[in-house]
Design a protein around this nucleic acid. Structure first.
Lengths: 155, 155
DNA sequence: CAGTAACCTCTCGACGATCGAGATAATCGA
DNA sequence: TCGATTATCTCGATCGTCGAGAGGTTACTG
């Protein structure tokens, strides 16, 4: 009965989400940070990987914080040496953020290590199987995204 | 190249996680709650579905809060009418928590509606395909769980 | 059945993260 | 040059969480 299967998969998805959340929490605990700090560092890492240097304002958009909170956030991360502030030479109103080498290394170790383990666990799958999984992930993400953007609790 | 596929799937997983997080945040925003409040209500709902009545202490374990915070949490939810406190007749030290009908309805609408949409989106899949997805979800969850329980950042 | 240990929840005071409002400084356009 | 705009920061206030400890309830033990 496919419907029953589907229900189980929805529950599995929830468990997976809990564990994925715990990845962030664990990194935070290990390094004396809170979840927001970790999300911020990840945002800076992602930007760096894309070759962009994040400004304070864009970081605020990425983690959904107001400017006052971003200032406090960057203060915290700068104080412990994970982040550096630099005035942008071209537009001196801007503050560009750079991760320290140690923070980059710690983040790469933790999150990159997980990514490595995940891809490793996928080696036992055929390309066809992974294609199915991919389609499923995209479909589920689309459904959830639509749900999140929809009218307040419309059917 | 299967390795490339795997990397993409890891990224998809991350996006999915972000959207799943947003489900909680959205429900919170719609009802004037914070994320912890929502997690607590979900915990009470889950317990109710299992036929258990949650106590304040067990709720604290479920959402990982100390007793002082649980008191404040239940105060908040009781004040807006989402939760009722009752002294347990058998062990009068205990406070058992029950969701109000309106809160149950709102939660069922939001989260049940999403579950319905998700299972609906899975109708286009064969049982074999869903079996592949299921195996993959279980494998990934196992990897992440191990990662979360492992020695601090061991290779 | 008395006394004590263990348990469950609550109160209180403190701290930290976030915010809104407004200040400060730099850039852009006319 | 001057006003409008942009980017960040400062300040004071609010809210969620916690540690310590109090108060009441149950279980154990002799």
């Amino acid at each position: 009965m496919s419907h029953e299967s589907a229900r189980e998969l929805a529950l599995l998805l929830r468990r997976l989400n809990v564990e994925l959340d715990a990845v962030t929490t664990r990194f935070a605990d290990l390094h004396g940070l809170n979840r927001t700090d970790v999300r911020a560092l990840v945002a800076v890492m992602d930007a760096a990987r894309r070759g962009e240097a994040l400004t304070a304002g864009r970081l605020g958009e990425a983690v959904d914080l107001r400017s006052a909170s971003v200032t406090a956030l960057v203060d915290r991360l700068e104080k412990v040496g994970h982040l550096r502030r630099t005035r942008d030479a071209e537009d001196r109103r801007r503050v560009v953020l750079e991760m320290s080498e140690t923070a980059l290394a710690a983040g790469g170790e933790h999150f990159g290590g997980l990514a490595r383990d995940l891809t490793g666990a996928m080696e036992g799958y055929t390309d066809d199987e992974l294609a199915v999984v991919r389609r499923w992930l995209e479909d589920m993400t689309a459904v959830i995204t639509r749900h999140n953007r929809a009218e307040p609790d419309g059917a």
